[in-house]
Design a protein around this nucleic acid. Sequence first.
DNA 1: TTCGTTGCAAATGTTTTGCACCTGA
DNA 2: TCAGGTGCAAAACATTTGCAACGAA
Lengths: 129, 129
Amino acid sequence: MAALKYSRQRESIKEFLATRYDHPTADVVYENIRKVYPNISLGTVYRNLGLLASLGEIQKVTTGDGADHFDGNVMPHNHFICKSCGKLIDLDMDSIDYIQKVAGKNFDGHIEGHSTLFYGTCGDCTNKS
Amino acid sequence: MAALKYSRQRESIKEFLATRYDHPTADVVYENIRKVYPNISLGTVYRNLGLLASLGEIQKVTTGDGADHFDGNVMPHNHFICKSCGKLIDLDMDSIDYIQKVAGKNFDGHIEGHSTLFYGTCGDCTNKS
DNA sequence: TTCGTTGCAAATGTTTTGCACCTGA
DNA sequence: TCAGGTGCAAAACATTTGCAACGAA
């Protein structure tokens, strides 16, 4: 099932995310893809973002500040969100995957992964104040 | 500013959360407080949950699966969400706060904290399958 | 009396969905 | 041909907000 057919819209969304290192929301993706395909609908953007995320070709990042963000970088990495300007940033840091072992010690279920979001003030905002 | 006056509704919400070790959503809180104060409105529940969270008397937990959850336990701890049944569980584990040092190594901003959500299959669901 | 709080309802913002039409394989 | 994809608009949710009435200090 789900024989997954080619679609220029989906391809375009994937390509767009590959060029962006901020982490656009569905709405920002929509406004940008629209420049190429003026008739694309927001529903199609959501459908494809969801599809690509479930295929593991992009990553969905939920921050709790309104809309979800999308990341074209599938390599495991962590994010930082600035409490001052709201920017969502990739962190270049060593793996912390061993926290899963720490978490599993007194736990009788099975831990498959984790998502960690760091917060504070970003470089730009720290220097500004 | 905000001279914070007593309200039985707010008190009731705080007490309710103190008795629950699952992590109810605003809607679940509403349905339960309603048994005591049938006229309380959902807006009031949201206002008070937000207020209590910003006072640090309860904790808001965003999982990305729809509605936010609320936790009466303010002690720092981590959560696990079961991909099979959706349950949100407290983890009894050693502190992993040193991951903030790891994250700050190549970062020019200031890291104040982190929120980590582990996921996988909980004990109940692991045994069932 | 004063000003924070409430209930209600309407508004907002995000995401999903039904449906008829379109399109890639 | 035909199942998957699209555009559009309506619906579904979660959450916030304006406002007049209420209640604690």
